[in-house]
């Protein structure tokens, strides 16, 4: 295979799994809570900085820092739920107030990162170092880990939603909230659970991706925007949509980038999305308002 082709496939699969991992958290929260969480990138940043802190200041190995970063991101997301989301659940203006609150949280997190650390780019070591070459293309082992983790998490989330009591309750709440409460499912607590899970996914993405993109107070922004695009492309609230759309967009972007140049990558992606939304306004697997998770 030609170097270009290998480059395009590798980059595409890697981007795709990264986009998918971020989009998974967004789509879960949208599907269950009807919350467009614009703090998803900030939660990504919280997870990465906590892991960075554990590695660089406490001198602990990255394998210790990884779970701590993930837990910190989940805790942060849950705290956000308690302080800004829960008080407005079921009240008029939920959409606007949570939208503004999550943007505010994003700004606060990046400011806090500058105050606590500094604006310089940080480096988190990869969980697995090293690489090898295939047709002159460097394949990093961390990249393989990211792809594997992303696929595994999609599988786990699917199994969780399909077969466990809690996962089924999340689907029930997303489909018929009133009936869910009549079945003694605590709706608001279920929201909190979904938001914490989504936070853990964002934190994991943050810790695993920072070796590629470096870490700075705004490094969650681009992944979140990409994830939003993926989520809309795949259908808001659809787990399967996030997976498929992540890979479709990642691979498409990578091929455009390799064969037509970087300048065409983003315009190409947007063109594809516009065309797709003309054909399917609810996204690939979007089913409108009724069906979500």
């Amino acid at each position: 295979m030609s170097t270009q082709l290998v480059q395009a496939i590798w980059g595409g699969v890697l981007f795709g799994s990264v986009y998918g991992l971020m989009a998974l958290g967004l789509t879960l929260v949208w599907g269950a809570v009807r919350l467009l969480n614009l703090a998803h990138g900030a939660i990504f940043v919280v997870g990465s900085y906590v892991a960075y802190f554990v590695v660089s200041r406490l001198n602990l190995p990255i394998l210790v820092a990884l779970p701590i970063g993930v837990l910190a991101a989940a805790a942060f997301a849950y705290l956000m739920h308690l302080t800004f989301i829960r008080p407005v659940i079921g009240k008029p203006g939920f959409d606007n107030s949570t939208l503004i609150a999550t943007v505010g949280i994003s700004i606060a997190v990046s400011a806090a990162a500058i105050l606590i650390f500094d604006p310089q780019y940080k480096v988190i070591p990869p969980v697995i170092a090293g690489n090898f070459t295939v047709s002159d293309v460097q394949i990093t082992k961390q990249g393989l880990l990211v792809i594997g983790t992303s696929l595994a998490l999609f599988g786990l989330v699917y199994l969780f939603l399909t077969y466990t009591r809690q996962g089924m309750a999340i689907r029930a709440v997303s489909q018929q909230q009133e009936a869910a409460s009549l079945m003694s499912i605590p709706v608001v607590r279920t929201y909190g659970l979904v938001i914490a899970i989504s936070g853990a996914l964002a934190g994991l993405a943050g810790v695993l991706l920072s070796p590629f993109f470096f870490l700075n107070p705004n490094s969650g922004f681009n992944p979140m925007i990409q994830a939003l695009i993926v989520t809309i492309f795949g259908g808001l609230g659809s787990v399967r949509g996030a997976l498929v759309a992540g890979f479709v967009l990642g691979i498409f972007e990578s091929f455009v980038e390799v064969f037509y140049g970087v300048a065409w990558a983003q315009p190409g992606v947007f063109l594809l999305i516009i065309l797709m939304l003309i054909v399917r306004p609810n996204g690939l697997f979007g089913i409108g308002e009724v069906r979500r998770l």
Partner: peptide
């Protein structure tokens, strides 16, 4: 709260059934 009342054994079969439309009968 409604879920606590249900947990106490007072079960309401609502008007319009309010099924979980995208879940199976067994689910």
């Amino acid at each position: 709260r409604a879920d606590a009342i249900a947990a106490a054994g007072v079960i309401h079969i609502p008007q319009g059934d309010l099924l979980f439309a995208e879940m199976t009968v067994t689910e």
